[in-house]
Structure formats: C-alpha cells, structure tokens
C-alpha cells in the first residue's frame, strides 16, 4: 500500500473524452438538441480545469502570499458574480450584497478551518487554502444564490401578504419574517440534504480523491467531516447575510416595502 496511486497520461484522458463524443453522437442521432451543449460543456470542463491546473502548479511553487491572495480574491469574486447572475428579480445593489455575503461567510470559515482546525504551521499554504476555499465557495455559492432568489421572489409574489402585515401594524422586520425564513431554509436545504446522506448514498468528492490518492479511509473521513462542517456553516452564514442585506435594501425606515426597486422577472 502506501501513498502510491495511478497517474494518468494524456492518452488515458483522451480515452475518457471518447465517452463525451459518444454522448454527443447519441444525442445527435436521437435529435435531443443538446449535442452542442454537450460539446461546449466538455471543452469548457477540459480547458477550465487545465487552466486551473497550470495556475495551481505555479501558485503552489511560488512563495508569494500576494499571488495566493489574488487567486483567492478572484475565486471569491467569480463566485459572487455567478450567484447574482441567475437572480430572477434583481434589485439595485444586489451584486454588492452577494460579494459581501460570499466574501464574509467563505473567508470567515476558511480562516476558522485553516488556523483553528488544521492549525497550519505554514500559516498560509496554497496547497490547503485554495482547495479549501474552492470547496467552501462552490457550496455557499449555491446556498446564497438560492436564498437570494427565494427572498426576492417571495417578497414580490407575496407582496399583498407583506403589505397586509404592514397595514395591520407589523414592523418591516415582522412583515419580512416569512420571506426571510423561507429564503434561509431554501438556501441551506441542499447542503443539509447532502450531509444527511453523506457516506450512505454518496462518497463526497474530496474523500473519493483522497482515497484514490492512497490516504487511509479513516483519515479521509476526518477531513471530509471537517470540510462538511466548514461548508455547511459558511452556507448558513452566507444565506443569513444575503437575506439580511436584501431586507435592508428592500425595506426602509418608514417600514415600507420598496417593491418599486425590484426588477421584473428575467
């Protein structure tokens, strides 16, 4: 045993890519109209991952903390941008809200994981912080995106309910409660679901990777548990912040719901 694992050469990767060609051919003959999407998605996957690979190879070697930080910042910003780009009903300041939510929640948990859990002696080792942040972002991005979408949609489609509460003397905070609760619940549902079945239905990606790389299962499990907790907390925190900031933006001190700020459905 030991830390040996099978390395892949380019031919072997190409053999795997033949699968995507088969899928594309199949969809073409069945007239599924997703042939183009299959090809584009495959090419994007390969190109983006190779680009990331080269970047990581370089960053892992460099001693520059600034370079590492830049990578972290770019990852965070792309995640924030992605989380708003699908928001069905955008409102002014929604991008800034997402940046703040994703940034605070993911970096707080990254710091917690890196300094308190792993007690990384190098302090700031790209081999840890980049994959850690990547995993945290990938998940909290979904949570924040879902929470944001649900929050605005809930307020907008149930505007009459919100205005009813306000008309009967509710504060804006009281009137926003149902929307806030539903938004946070929706945002945290996927991660809670995957925690419910972790290990039973699915072996999470990172654990699988470690097992293949030869890490003992019990070690891999410990890592996975830590990661899951970091991801979940970051998602809950992010969903809370993005909904809270959304509340601040869409209600004012006059206990008004500023429905006129919410854009029409994309």
């Amino acid at each position: 045993m030991g830390n040996s694992y099978l390395t892949l050469n380019h031919v072997q990767v190409s053999i795997a890519s033949a699968l995507m060609f088969l899928s594309a051919l199949l969809s073409f003959y069945l007239g599924l109209k997703i042939t183009k999407s299959i090809l584009i998605a495959s090419i994007r996957t390969a190109l983006q991952l190779f680009a990331m690979g080269f970047l990581l190879q370089w960053v892992f070697k460099t001693e520059s903390k600034i370079a590492v930080t830049c990578v972290l910042i770019v990852m965070t910003l792309v995640a924030a941008w992605t989380s708003t780009s699908r928001c069905a009903r955008p409102f002014p300041g929604v991008l800034l809200n997402s940046v703040l939510s994703i940034w605070t929640s993911s970096w707080a948990l990254l710091a917690y994981g890196n300094f308190l859990v792993f007690e990384n002696p190098d302090g700031y080792n790209p081999q840890y912080v980049i994959p850690l942040l990547g995993m945290i972002l990938g998940n909290s991005l979904n949570g924040i995106s879902l929470a944001l979408d649900r929050f605005t949609e809930e307020l907008f489609s149930k505007r009459d309910q919100v205005e009813l509460s306000l008309s009967l003397g509710a504060t804006s905070w009281e009137a926003a409660q149902p929307a806030l609760r539903n938004a946070i619940r929706t945002g945290t549902l996927p991660i809670l679901n995957s925690m419910m079945v972790a290990g039973v239905v699915s072996l999470p990606g990172m654990m699988t990777g470690q097992l293949i790389a030869g890490v003992s299962p019990l070690e891999a499990v410990k890592y996975q548990i830590v990661i899951m907790f970091l991801i979940a907390t970051s998602t809950i925190l992010g969903a809370l912040i993005v909904s809270g900031l959304g509340y601040k933006k869409l209600f004012n001190q006059w206990h008004q719901f500023e429905y006129w700020k919410v854009g029409s459905k994309k």
């Binding site: 009459d160 309910q161 205005e163 009813l164 306000l166 008309s167 009967l168 003397g169 509710a170 504060t171 001190q253 006059w254 206990h255």
Partner: peptide
C-alpha cells in the same frame, strides 16, 4: 415619524380594494 409608523398603522388601517386573507 418613521419609528412610529407601526403604531400609526395600528390606528389608521387601510383596507385594499381586493382584500388579502392568509
């Protein structure tokens, strides 16, 4: 004043054309 609006709305109640029920 802004802070008194919930109180004010508990004294001055608006009933919309199409009532909303929960």
């Amino acid at each position: 004043a802004a802070a008194e609006i919930p109180f004010y709305r508990s004294r001055v109640i608006y009933l919309p054309q199409k009532p909303t029920l929960e």
